[in-house]
Simulated assay, not measured.
Amino acid sequence: MAGYVDGYWWSNDNLRLHYRDYPGGGDGRPPILCIPGLTRNARDFADVAERLSGDWRVICIDLRGRGESAYARDAMSYVPLTYVQDVERLFEDLKVTSYVAFGTSLGGIVTMLLGSTGKEQIAGALFNDVGPVIEPAGSARIRGYVGKGGSWPTWLHAARSLAEMQGAVYPHYQLTDWLAMAKRLYRLTSNGRIVNDYDLKIAEPFHLPGSDAGIDLWPALAPFRTVPSLIVRGGLSDVLGEGTLERMATTLPQAETVTIDRIGHTPTLSEPEAVAAIDRLLARVLAA
């Protein structure tokens, strides 16, 4: 039996969005909101949620266009500010006034923007391999694969394809690891083919003129200066640079930084170092 219930909410533009709701202990702790990366979905946090649930309520969302959430009619809504609005609607529905955010990659950017709105109290945050600056090499690599179609006849074929594409990110992975990742990233269609579990149109905003410029996200870290935070970096990351990590640590007095060796973008948060750091973060949240 699944340790979660499926929940749904509606966006401002009338999309039905999905989340997994893992129960907590009912002792008044703020829920943990897990926000996945660009091409990921709620399944990415299954191990984390299963480990923490019972003590913590864990809400793992599918951003619009991913997993069980509806695909947007307007591809230009696949941008962080819209994701923030979607999450704020979820908070309204669930009457969430305080929360701990776990944001992986894009999810970390959404976390920064959520904190800067000030509409709900941020009790703690985990930034998984992401910061206010995205390294050009990582940005180029992501642009090279996001939105590209593909299908495979079996999970084994999908896993091997994933290994060819991401082998440098997880150099120690075995076939069983790639199979597990494939089942988090892909879905089985009604015609028996395995495909990406996201709307390929999420890539369209990347092609807009000036999309490389981005915005200055350093000011968005200001609300996190006074709350416990954790920054996890893959030692091989091409997205979160060491210089950015050092500046984040200086900017956020209550931040702990942890680097996971032999991992690129992104750590799964199931690594022993990440598990221990998450427990320390949550202990600090409770003590705050």
Rank of each mutant, 00 (worst) to 15 (best):
F45D: 02
F45W: 13
F45H: 12
V48W: 10
V48T: 10
V48E: 07
A49N: 08
A49P: 06
E50L: 06
R51I: 13
R51K: 12
L52E: 12
L52G: 10
L52Q: 13
G54C: 12
D55L: 13
D55R: 15
D55E: 15
R57P: 01
I59L: 13
I59E: 00
I61G: 05
D62I: 05
D62C: 00
D62Q: 05
L63V: 01
L63P: 07
L63D: 01
R64A: 12
G65R: 08
R66Q: 08
G67A: 06
E68G: 08
E68S: 11
E68A: 14
E68H: 13
S69P: 03
A70F: 06
Y71Q: 04
Y71R: 11
D74R: 10
A75G: 05
M76V: 00
Y78N: 03
Y78A: 06
P80A: 13
T82L: 03
T82G: 00
T82I: 11
T82F: 05
Y83L: 06
V84C: 09
V84T: 11
V84Y: 08
V84L: 07
Q85V: 14
Q85H: 12
Q85K: 13
Q85G: 15
V87E: 00
E88H: 14
R89Y: 04
R89M: 08
F91K: 02
F91C: 11
F91A: 02
F91W: 15
F91R: 07
L94F: 12
K95I: 09
K95P: 02
V96I: 15
V96E: 10
T97V: 10
T97H: 15
Y99H: 11
Y99M: 13
Y99W: 13
A101D: 06
G103R: 02
T104K: 07
S105Y: 05
L106I: 00
L106Y: 01
G107K: 02
G108E: 02
G108C: 00
I109N: 04
V110L: 01
V110K: 00
T111K: 04
M112E: 09
L113K: 08
L114Y: 02
L114E: 05
G115D: 05
S116L: 02
S116E: 09
G118Q: 00
G118A: 06
I122N: 01
A123Q: 12
G124I: 10
G124L: 10
A125C: 11
A125I: 04
L126Y: 01
F127G: 06
N128I: 04
D129F: 00
V130P: 00
G131E: 04
P132H: 04
E135N: 07
P136N: 11
P136Y: 10
P136W: 11
A137L: 09
A137K: 15
A137S: 14
A137Y: 07
G138T: 06
S139C: 05
S139M: 12
A140T: 03
A140I: 01
R143P: 01
G144T: 08
G144P: 09
G144I: 07
G144S: 13
Y145N: 07
V146P: 05
G147R: 03
G149M: 09
G150M: 01
S151T: 07
W152T: 01
P153F: 04
P153G: 05
W155G: 02
W155C: 02
H157E: 13
H157N: 11
A158E: 08
A158T: 12
A159W: 06
A159Q: 09
A159E: 03
R160T: 08
S161T: 11
L162M: 14
A163V: 09
M165H: 12
G167D: 06
